[in-house]
Amino acid sequence: MNLALRWLAWCAASIWLAAPALAHKPSDSYLSITQTATALTGQWDIALRDLDFAIGLDADGNGEITWGEVRSHHADIAAYALARLAVEGDGQPCVLRAGEQLIDQHTDGAYTVIPLQLNCPSAPAQLRLTYRLFADIDPQHRGLLRLEAQGQSRAAVLGPNAPTQAFDLAQPSRFGQFIDYAREGVWHIWIGYDHILFLLSLLLPAVLAWRAARWQPAENFRDAFVDVLKIVTAFTLAHSITLSLATLGLISLPSRWVESAIAASVVLAALNNLWPLFHGRRWTMAFAFGLIHGFGFASVLADLGLPQGTLALALVGFNVGVELGQLAIVAAFLPLAFMLRDTRFYQRGVFVGGSAAIAVLAALWFAERAFELKLLAF
């Protein structure tokens, strides 16, 4: 029991300390490489806010990055980026050259767009990429790769977990593409701390029961399991609906609205633990707010710019990955929480203290996202 107490306390502390760093959309760049009959070309979109942190774009320090400031740093940007991307064709190094940069908008702000020319010794059958952009300053940064060859498109995630990856340029297997998208779904839920805290807010009372106007320990594991099953099923169904609609382009909402609403959902879910209004119908809250979270999940697939032929595979694979990520969290949390449900540590420390901490943190996220404030120093 002491080991279980220490483990749960460690998990709660880890989430509390790490969450602010990922309160917003994680740091991503978007790298596309296209093979034609005669050449390899590409495009690399990198967030200006990340480049400003790395090499300093805001020359006058007024908090705003102008086109003139970006343009004056084009050579620095290209040199910084190309020094952190290596490409080999059939084991031989390819020379990367950057073209004239432009500016584009993604769901989370302005990006510099670097056209790429990849000169390999011969037309390669396999590409090997080593990606280390921002590796020394942001261990959570990822490069979202879209590779088009032989009339097919595939996706991959480049980052600290897998900085070097090889790709056969022959027609890719559908199963391999499915695994790539599923892996991205798992990773997205694990680093999306607002999604995790929303899920935990719903899981915390699952091992308790509302009786005599107060939370009391659940009588058996079956009741707790059924409660969690209802919540996870409702959340899954809801975010699958909006994930599909948003990725297919049928519904589009501003990123600021979506991210603000996600933060608000975390606040309300946590406060419901302290002053319960939906103690017997929390699955309805999971469904309603799951619709909002689906738009947040869709931002990753939308920014990849996937072609129509890959959309169905991407949707299914990514959604499966999200569910696997959620199930891993549930499987780790529920048994331990049930073991500790009748202890003061769980009832007062984890349940009440954890819910209050989640509500305060998510309220700060909401204020930052809705009113474009900077309240957290990290």
Rank of each mutant, 00 (worst) to 15 (best):
A261V: 02
Q326E: 07
L311R: 15
Q326C: 07
F297G: 04
F289K: 07
L271F: 10
W283R: 15
T233M: 05
S240G: 12
T233P: 09
L324R: 02
V320P: 01
D227K: 15
G294V: 03
S299I: 11
G280A: 03
G280R: 14
P254G: 15
I231A: 05
V258Y: 03
F289W: 11
T284G: 13
L268M: 09
S240E: 03
R256A: 11
A269V: 02
G309Y: 00
V228D: 02
N273V: 05
W283Y: 14
V232G: 05
L311Y: 13
S240Q: 07
T236E: 02
R281P: 01
M285F: 06
A302K: 12
L245Y: 06
W257Y: 14
A314N: 03
S299M: 11
F235W: 02
L243C: 01
G305E: 13
A314R: 03
G317S: 13
A328R: 09
G325V: 08
P307D: 14
N319Y: 04
F278N: 14
Q326T: 04
L248A: 14
L277R: 14
V232I: 11
L291V: 05
A234Q: 04
A234I: 01
R281I: 01
A263I: 10
L291D: 04
M285A: 13
E259A: 12
A302E: 12
L306V: 12
L313R: 15
L250Y: 13
T284R: 14
H293R: 07
V228M: 11
V258L: 08
V322T: 02
I292H: 04
A261Q: 10
V228A: 14
S265R: 02
A263R: 13
I292F: 10
A269E: 03
L271G: 12
G305Q: 14
I292M: 10
D227V: 10
I262H: 05
L253G: 08
G294I: 00
V300A: 13
S255F: 08
G249A: 07
H293C: 09
N319A: 08
L248W: 12
L253K: 05
A314H: 08
S252E: 11
R282V: 05
F297H: 08
I292D: 06
H293K: 09
F295N: 02
W283M: 06
T310D: 12
L306D: 07
T233Y: 00
V300Q: 11
L248P: 05
L315M: 13
L243D: 01
I262A: 02
V228L: 09
V300D: 05
I231G: 03
